[in-house]
Write a protein that binds this DNA or RNA. Structure first.
Length: 500
RNA sequence: GUCCCCGUAGCUCAGUGGACAGAGCGGCUGCCUUCUAAGCAGCGGGUCGCAGGUUCGAAUCCUGCCGGGGACGCCA
């Protein structure tokens, strides 16, 4: 049967059933070329949805019965090394991770937001060496840290950490390590403060040091050895990643006995699973794609469900200023601090910017243009619609009017019916977003809802003393719209102002 | 050389099997004596990188090519 014929048959059957059932939510079903069936909801069904929003505002837009509902997910993101403040380059990871966590929660999942601090890496020692060099008036090593913040750290370094050892000896750069640990601890507190300012809260902070001290790396290595997934070659210990489809095998323990970054990855894997997560998500930069396979392979080799280990790679953000490419090197000190940009842009505008774009696409951001255009950000369009409704509701209250408990009979009119149909779609939008683990649908919907309200505002007067009954119902519809806008913005971590 | 991501309006990006491909910004034209003009209405703007293929139907799936970015270490 050709699509138009199938559509016609379906439409006929649905229409017949709707006619038989008095309480059917479907008012009509019509076939349309080249094979669509257009359903029209009954006004009564739509009215019930709108009334329900105001009865349980907090629940509106939360989906509890999706396929993944109830899952406990660990989302690890940012995890920038504590060797300098967060840069604008870290902004994407921070927002993408936080937005993902929010959308998963809206879909009924439990989320732990986690940050991994590499506090024992060579870069910490390197940072310490740079600080001591400045303190002692020596030149900073070429591959050391050159940013202004390093000078500040050198100034603030406690005397006992800068003093040479009495015996003049410094086994394995112990002084560098001590200064580096002090500095990274201080930087870490700054990073935590920056993230709080973005509205990004973490539930767990894990350090590289704790993975060794807790025996997690040893445990991971033991598990791989038991499964015969390790072998010795050239004095190093290798993981047979190729068994699971990788390009090459990977070193776990170097010939000098030290652990590779990969060793910490697999130790962390065991540690995370020991906390009974159903699913692990890593937000990594696109440059880490090469490490995806080995970590997932190791999970499989250790007996975990490979599908439970998921990496989301964020695309590159290419920053330019006045046509000039900006490099973001912490070591060279040529970065733009995240705090500085946010102070000018505002967290709401920045959040919207990243929420409305896919995580994996590359983007060009002109810093000067972004600053100049921040007031043109679409986020204000949506916030304005919310503030406008809030203003109307205040004005109604002042005039002694209250919203009706039900919008019954109101939605047959064009301005009301068109707005209500957009409002009613919100849960479906959230469900799609949670399933796709993306937020672009939310921003697109919020914009559409704001547009629908502005059209309603133009065509229908809400506060009208001459028609108190219809006015009360329009207030109810406006309030339901306000709740939808507020919940959509909250889902994105964006404020919903009462006035603008 | 191998692998991954991207290529859609002047710009920044949505849309990943269905109806004439959308939004914001920018450009042009109108609209404030009535609930917020951070708004509304309208105009202009497209070989969906290119070429094949699959399908009743492709921006969307497959193959090849072109262009941009990234990864291929006993670095992190």
């Amino acid at each position: 049967m050709a699509p138009p014929a199938i559509a016609a048959a379906l439409a006929e059957a649905i229409a017949a059933e709707a006619n038989d059932d008095q309480g059917s939510p479907i008012a009509s079903a019509k076939a349309a070329a080249p094979g669509f069936v257009n359903l029209r909801f009954a006004d009564a069904a739509l009215e019930a949805v709108i009334d329900g929003i105001r009865l349980a505002p907090a629940a509106w837009g939360r989906v509890a019965d999706s396929a993944s509902a109830g899952r406990h997910v660990n989302v690890e993101f940012v995890s920038a090394n504590p060797t300098g403040p967060l840069t604008v380059g870290n902004a994407r990871g921070a927002f993408v991770g936080d937005l993902l966590a929010r959308v998963l929660e809206a879909g009924g999942q439990r989320v732990t937001r986690e940050y991994y601090f590499n506090d024992t890496g060579a870069q910490v020692k390197n940072l310490g060496a740079s600080i001591l060099a400045i303190r002692e008036g020596r030149a900073i090593p070429e591959d050391g840290y050159h940013g202004e913040y390093v000078v500040d750290l050198a100034t603030e370094l406690p005397d006992e950490l800068s003093a040479p050892r009495a015996d003049g000896d410094d086994p394995e750069g112990e002084r560098f390590w001590a200064a580096g640990r002090w500095a990274s601890d201080r930087i870490r507190r700054g990073i935590e403060a920056s993230l709080e300012a973005l509205g990004v809260h973490f539930d767990a902070w894990t350090t590289e040091g704790s993975l060794v001290e807790g025996g997690w790396v040893d445990q991971a290595v033991a598990r791989l050895r038991e499964g015969d997934h390790l072998y010795e070659q050239d004095g190093a210990t290798w993981f047979r990643s190729t068994t699971f489809g990788d390009d090459k095998d990977r070193v776990v323990i170097r010939s000098n006995g030290s652990l590779t970054y990969f060793a910490f990855d697999i130790g962390y894997l065991v540690e995370k699973f020991s906390r009974n997560f159903d699913h692990l998500i890593y937000i990594w930069g696109a440059d880490h794609h090469g490490t995806v396979a080995r970590v997932r392979n190791a999970a499989e080799a250790m007996g975990y469900d490979k599908a439970a280990v998921e990496m989301i790679l964020t695309g590159w953000v290419h920053f330019v200023s006045g046509g000039q490419e900006l490099s973001m090197s912490k070591r060279a000190g040529t970065f733009i601090a995240l705090d500085d940009l946010l102070a000018e842009l505002g967290a709401d505008a920045a959040r919207w910017y990243f929420a409305s774009r896919g995580a994996n696409v590359n983007m060009d951001v002109d810093i000067e243009l972004a600053k100049r255009q921040s007031s043109e950000n679409p986020v204000y369009y949506v916030q304005y619609a919310h503030a406008r409704i809030a203003s109307i509701l205040r004005k109604a209250t002042d005039a002694g009017m209250t919203a009706a408990p039900s919008v019954a009979g109101l939605l047959a009119g064009a301005p009301e019916g068109m707005l209500a149909r957009v409002v009613a779609r919100f849960p479906e939008v959230v469900e799609d977003a949670a399933a796709a683990q993306e937020t672009q649908g939310i921003t697109a919907y919020a914009t559409e809802l704001a547009t629908a309200f502005h059209a309603f505002y133009r065509d229908a007067r809400v506060i009208d003393a001459d028609e108190p009954e219809r006015s009360a119902k329009r207030l109810a519809l406006a309030d339901a719209t306000r709740i939808s806008l507020a919940n959509a913005l909250a889902l994105l971590g964006i404020s919903a102002p009462e006035a603008m």
